[in-house]
Write a protein that binds this DNA or RNA. Structure first.
Ligand SMILES: [Mn+2]
Ligand SMILES: [Mn+2]
Ligand SMILES: [Zn+2]
Ligand SMILES: [Zn+2]
Lengths: 143, 143
DNA sequence: GTTGAAATTGATAACCCGTCTCAAAAAGAA
DNA sequence: TTCTTTTTGAGACGGGTTATCAATTTCAAC
């Protein structure tokens, strides 16, 4: 049994439902993706160049976006490039981002989420998604 | 006394401190900007084309960024284009965004802000800025 | 295992948004 | 008015992502 059998199953189910095909590239990219917390398309491009020098950047973008549709990833726009966030084996979470060194810390806070719901309700909204990012200096960069 | 005397004063003070000049374009753009809650550079470009058909898009971008430096505006990246948020006469606030009609509602919630500080402290971070956006359907779009 | 329709891939062109460049114009202190 | 400095407008440019399209691969049906 492969290391990422569960996620591979999720992907295959999504492919089946949308008459999409299981390819060597999709398998390769999923394997690499699941080893990361966050990764950009370019980073993955360079990383995978060793395993398959012919893998195109467009394929990486297409595949990471496919993972988002399948619920395995979530696209986040921290800085200039899109970060693809691995959410397959942890639930929703938000981020602390160090403006000094770029370090990213994940966190989850039910109290904040609850207050968000309250705000939405008070304004007649039904929340579908949200984005909470805290930018600042980590302990190392403060000194 | 002009309608936007206070903000014009803030701008002029900023200009003075940085040996920048007060121009017809900057005055025109500030006047238009202060009538909005949020606006993109393109929107303002088209809107002002009537008053001055020769006003360049680059000037609008430069001037809106200047307003950010002067503390009159804040750049926000809701969708694909940068929204310049009028913060001159209200303090910091966050946003509810309707994914149906694009409506944007501003809100402020001290409890959420306090919890954010707690999360940051717990992780050794000092917050500089944050971004909180709640995406969902407004009451009209839900039906 | 072959066949053949449908999906996918990779190279690269196109795209979008925003910034940069630079010569001409405007500001404003003296 | 003079003269230096800043600003402007037109368009070129740049980074990140998506669109295009011919060649290849997948996979269901024989
Ligand atoms: Mn994350
Ligand atoms: Mn606002
Ligand atoms: Zn840091
Ligand atoms: Zn709506």
């Amino acid at each position: 049994m492969s290391k990422h059998a569960k996620e591979m199953g999720i992907l295959k189910e999504h492919l089946g439902k949308h008459q999409l095909k299981f390819t060597r590239q999709r398998e390769l990219i999923l394997d690499a993706f699941l080893k990361q917390e966050h990764i950009t398309a370019e980073e993955m491009y360079h990383q995978l160049a060793r395993k398959d020098p012919h893998l195109g950047l467009a394929t990486i973008y297409r595949t990471l976006n496919l993972f988002c549709e399948a619920g395995l990833a979530q696209a986040r726009h921290f800085g200039t490039q899109t970060q693809y966030d691995n959410v397959s084996h942890k639930g929703h979470h938000d981020h602390l981002i160090c403006t000094g060194c770029g370090k990213i810390v994940e966190f989850e806070n039910c109290d904040i989420e609850r207050l968000q719901e309250e705000v939405a309700t008070r304004n007649g909204f039904t929340i579908q998604t949200h984005r909470l990012e805290l930018y600042g200096l980590c302990s190392r960069c403060r000194h």
